[in-house]
Design a protein around this nucleic acid. Structure first.
Lengths: 342, 342
DNA sequence: TTGAAAGCGCTAACAA
DNA sequence: TTGTTAGCGCTTTCAA
């Protein structure tokens, strides 16, 4: 049986209240009594019952996050680093992290509702935002504290941190154009993800800035998995007028592209340039190493969590809309297109 | 303000007790009253306060897990799949998953103590077990429910699920020997991890079974990261009598080995065979594709969680010591050693 | 079939 | 400086 305040109170002969106060560090307890109480609490190895405290305080000091699990894994390897950042920040401030997974399909919103309505958590972190995001709409309507990783396309205002996908794709596209590429294929993420729009926009604008027409037929949509990257690349590269470069919306699809290029007997970086997005650890391990756009996943998780904790502690966020700048990491998977080299 | 039982009671004119009973599905409530209560509860969008229920029931329906975060990421990419498995299983049974991270260093045990003593969770999952595992000793001493992923080297008995690392390394080593390799380097995991011992044992036994002497100098210890794999490989491959094959205790180090081999101007699979362990998604994406031993991470997480939930629900585990068999996945990174091919 | 009362362990307003 | 009292929202005897 766990030790309670009552046990200590009985042993020291003070009231439960006094014991509580002594242990919580109030200054209206005589130093001598405090010493006795502390000593006994220590002897008995007392730890407060967190549930009772929560009920009384009407707050849980817990942050909720729902991680999409696609088939048998985290939807995106990006999330494990993001989650590490969130977790470390939460621990630092004494917050618990309640992680729920949700296999693909409907019912995602219910997970949020449950966390909110049953008062399991004090605030939530929303990831993989969508243009019309019902989770965000719900949380705003409920007036429930949350911070999103990613923007949305709603009228309503809310706190978020995002990585500037537009700028990221600008850098990447410009890089390819500078290398002489004109026929650039683009493997997008599904457009129900908000970042797919930002990234595509950056891509299009950069083409336009350089007077390269955007060729609709060179844009295809992948499902973020490696297989879809390789399948789409195979299709793109066996066309009559094949692209000289392929950009993918994440590193996993890009690595699939690399595999497909190899299978077709071409050489990445010479025959076809490949660019990814995210800079997950994998990107350094492909051959040739992948040129990609670095998103600071751990850092983003850390800061999103920080924003949420600040607002939970009543501090108005001095900057409720944070945009981190991604960074083009040039490795080996690009190069001047074959035609130029001759 | 959230709706409470009291609100409903007031509205329908019954006592809180009756409302509680009606909502919890007791059969000693008149059907007519139940209907009214259910209707009003629905109208008011009532959801029970989970904290109050927990305090009353003295149980949290929450499972705790502490994920080691090494620098800025999960210590092992393996964990994200494992965690997805745990999470999906927990959700399925209505359990919450409380995830704590712990940056490297001391104080790991304190995270466990806090979860246990403050009664945050009903049971725990322990991962990355060690030969003398203070966390396991602690949990056993406390009589606190837990299931470990991995074995230990303690006198005491406890429930665990493990992957048979010995058998895994047996298969891998035998594979290399069958291909004609005799000088096989072995990059171990640190020996404070229990599985490092099992895997090495499998390796040694297989050598011995095939009358290949174990050469102490060919065994080195890595830190599980890619860099250490490449550094150690560089060292091994620039020796006078260099190994014809290198086995690594996980895929990340193996991918580092592949990189080092390439840098040294040798060819993986022809000059040097490389074998990994885990079969993380990365393994299919290296070039050449990595021959490795598959650990079913998602499945392991799923089943560990299932074991824990069973025992929390009072069912004695019919099989408290589960060993999953890993599977050698032969891809392209091995081959007959160069000398044999001639 | 329903309700009153007690209490899970804690904190906090108020009184002494 | 300390104690009394009340109550967070729920479940569960026990009695009516």
């Amino acid at each position: 049986m766990p030790v309670t305040l009552k046990d200590i109170a009985q042993k020291v002969g003070y009231s439960v209240t006094t014991v509580s106060r002594a242990l919580t560090g109030y200054d209206d307890v005589a130093e001598s009594t405090r010493q006795i109480i502390l000593k006994v609490a220590d002897e008995l190895d007392y730890h407060p019952n967190i549930t009772a405290r929560r009920l009384r305080k009407q707050s849980t000091d817990t942050i909720g996050i729902v991680v999409p699990t696609y088939r048998t894994r985290f939807g995106d390897p990006f999330f494990s680093d993001f989650l590490a950042g969130v977790g470390n920040k939460a621990v630092e401030h004494g917050f618990d992290l309640l992680v729920s997974t949700h296999p693909p399909g409907a019912g995602e919103l219910d997970v949020y509702k449950r966390m909110v309505m049953e008062q399991r958590v004090d605030g939530m972190i929303v990831i993989t935002t969508r243009p019309q995001d019902e989770r965000i709409i719900y949380l705003i309507e409920q007036g429930f504290p949350f911070v999103a990783f990613g923007r949305s396309d709603l009228e309503m205002d809310f706190a978020y941190l995002d990585v500037d996908g537009e700028a990221g794709m600008r850098q990447a596209t410009q890089h390819l154009i500078d290398l002489g590429h004109r026929r650039i294929a683009y493997i997008s993420a599904p457009f129900d993800l908000m970042y797919a729009h930002h990234r595509l926009q950056g891509h299009k604008e950069t083409l336009s800035d350089n007077d390269v027409p955007f060729d609709e037929s060179l844009m295809v949509i992948g499902d973020l998995m490696e297989r879809s990257g390789s399948a789409l690349a195979r299709e793109l590269l066996t066309r009559n007028k094949r692209p000289s470069a392929i950009m993918a919306c994440n590193d996993w699809m890009a690595s699939g592209v690399i595999g497909a290029v190899r299978e077709l007997g071409m050489t990445v970086g010479r025959d076809v340039a490949v660019v990814g997005f995210d800079d997950v650890p994998l990107a350094r391990l492909t051959h040739p190493q992948l040129t990609t756009v670095r998103q600071p996943a751990y850092d983003a998780g850390w800061r999103v969590c920080e924003m949420l904790i600040s607002s939970l502690q009543g501090d108005a966020l001095e900057e409720p809309h944070l945009i981190l700048q991604p960074q083009l990491i040039v490795r080996e998977s690009c190069g001047a297109p074959a035609s130029q080299k001759k």
